[in-house]
Structures are given as C-alpha cells and as structure tokens.
C-alpha cells in the first residue's frame, strides 16, 4: 500500500462535542489512496513541529472523503480546532497495519472508549460490507461524551456503557452484558487501562483480541524507533509500522 504526502482540503469542520473536532476532508487533487480500517494519518499541525498521528475515522463511499475525529488535548491537536471549511491540511497516509479482516465464521465485537472509538466506525463499515456479524460496544464517562453515536447506529448494532449510567448500561465496557454473547474476536481502541481490561476479559472468554496502541510518534514510518512497545519476547516493535494494531497475545500484557 503506497504511502502518500497529501494536501487535503477541509470540506467540513465541526465541534459536536466540547473539546473535540470532526474534520471531513478531500484531496485537493487526485484520489485518496486506498486505506484499511485501523490505519492512521500523520497530520501536519500549525501548533507544533512534529506531525500528530490520527486514526482514519471513516472513508466515505466513493473513497474521496476522509474523516478524522480529534480530541484537543495539547498544542498539536488544539490547532485542528482552528480549521474551517476550505482550509488546507497536510497528511501522510495511510500508515500502519490496520485491523485484521475477520473470517466468515467470526462474530466481532468492536470495543471503543473515548476518542478511541474513531477507527472503529471505519472498521464497522468494512465488516458490514463483507457481511461479517458484528456489534459496537462504546464506553464513556457520561451520555454527552458518547462520540458519533448516530453514525455508529447507522452502521450497526450499538451497545453503550457509561460510568454514571446516563446512557446504556451503568459501568465500564468490561462489565457490559454484551460480553456474555458468543463473539469470536474483539477489536478494541481506547485508553490503555481499558484495552488491557478488555484483552484480559476476552482471553478469559476464549475470544481473540486485537488492540490499537497510541504511542507517541515522530516519523510514523518505521525510521526513528521512537514509538516502540515491548512484545512478549522482550523485543521492541514499532507501533507505527508493526502496529498500531497488535494481537493482545503479542504484547507483554498479562
């Protein structure tokens, strides 16, 4: 899959949730390169020197328009809040390996927390196209922090867990009754403690589990070795090229 340096033009920039920005953008010329769910882009930001890795949230049908869902947490990501329709955004994409494509016998649970839900929308889209049974399980502190709920509902069945019980079941995603159903594969993205708990639970229930890591990056292309994570064998693996998606059993998580 060829990586490209692309100038994107913002078609829509909205902030449907406080502290988050949803960007929809198209290449200023030519087509969007083919992307797999779970892959990411390295976005140039006016707020910092280095690019920031951001998941591909969705690619619209026809493949021209890409979506990014960004939480403004620091100087790099806050700058994305200043973008308006018509502005230019430079991206290096697609990067990373992406989620595995499940087989026909699989039933998939896509578990997201916080802004980690971003890549799951695209993955759900792809699973639906392939006719693979799946559901989303989305977690948040409260109902108003459930991101893109309507978009997820358009794509598939959605279970919700909120810590304050303001929507769906009360509690963490790992306490949700959805885990009682016979899924064969869990694909998850979110805060590391959540993913670790999800991986442990999946393991106990005999489900395979893929996790998407969010290590800090510099190059995003496997050249600088800044983004590494230690695998089960004690060797360092690049999150940007060997990941960001890893089988939970590959990592040195208990």
């Amino acid at each position: 899959m060829k990586k490209e340096i692309l100038d994107l033009q913002i078609a829509e920039a909205t902030s449907p949730w406080e502290g988050f920005v949803l960007l929809k953008a198209e290449p200023t010329e030519g087509a969007l390169p083919e992307c797999r769910p779970g892959q990411f882009a390295q976005l140039r930001t006016g707020g910092a020197l280095l690019r920031r890795p951001i998941s591909i949230h969705n690619v619209e049908e026809g493949g021209r328009r890409v979506w990014f869902l960004v939480q403004a947490v620091g100087r790099g990501t806050r700058w994305f809040q200043t973008l308006k329709a018509g502005d230019c955004l430079n991206a290096v994409m697609p990067l990373g390996n992406g989620f595995g494509m499940p087989g026909s016998g699989d039933r998939v649970l896509l578990v997201g927390g916080g802004v980690g839900v971003a890549p799951l929308l695209f993955q759900g889209q792809r699973l639906r196209e392939r006719g693979i049974p799946f559901a989303f399980l989305l977690g948040a502190r409260s109902a108003d922090l459930l991101l893109q709920l309507e978009e997820f509902r358009r794509v598939g069945e959605v279970f919700v867990a909120t810590e304050d019980g303001s929507a769906g079941e009360c509690g963490l995603v790992t306490q949700h009754s959805a885990f009682a159903a016979p899924y064969t594969l869990v694909q998850t993205c979110g805060p590391t403690p959540m993913m670790r708990a999800v991986a442990r639970l999946a393991h106990e229930q005999g489900m395979r589990c893929e996790v998407s890591l969010e290590n800090r990056m510099a190059c995003g292309v496997g050249a600088c070795l800044c983004c590494v994570t230690e695998d089960r064998t004690g060797h360092n693996r690049c999150v940007c090229t060997d990941g960001p998606v890893f089988g939970a059993e590959e990592l040195n998580w208990d």
Partner: peptide, 20 residues
C-alpha cells in the same frame, strides 16, 4: 541492542528530544 525503554521522544520548542 534493544535500546532504551519507551517513552523515547519528547517534543520541545522548535525541536525534539530522543533517547532511542
């Protein structure tokens, strides 16, 4: 050599630190 543990990078004003 396995190098140093993560985190190995920090962005600073107009630069970056690495300890790969």
């Amino acid at each position: 050599r396995e190098g140093n543990p993560y985190p190995r990078m920090a962005e600073t004003a107009s630069g970056m630190l690495n300890c790969v």
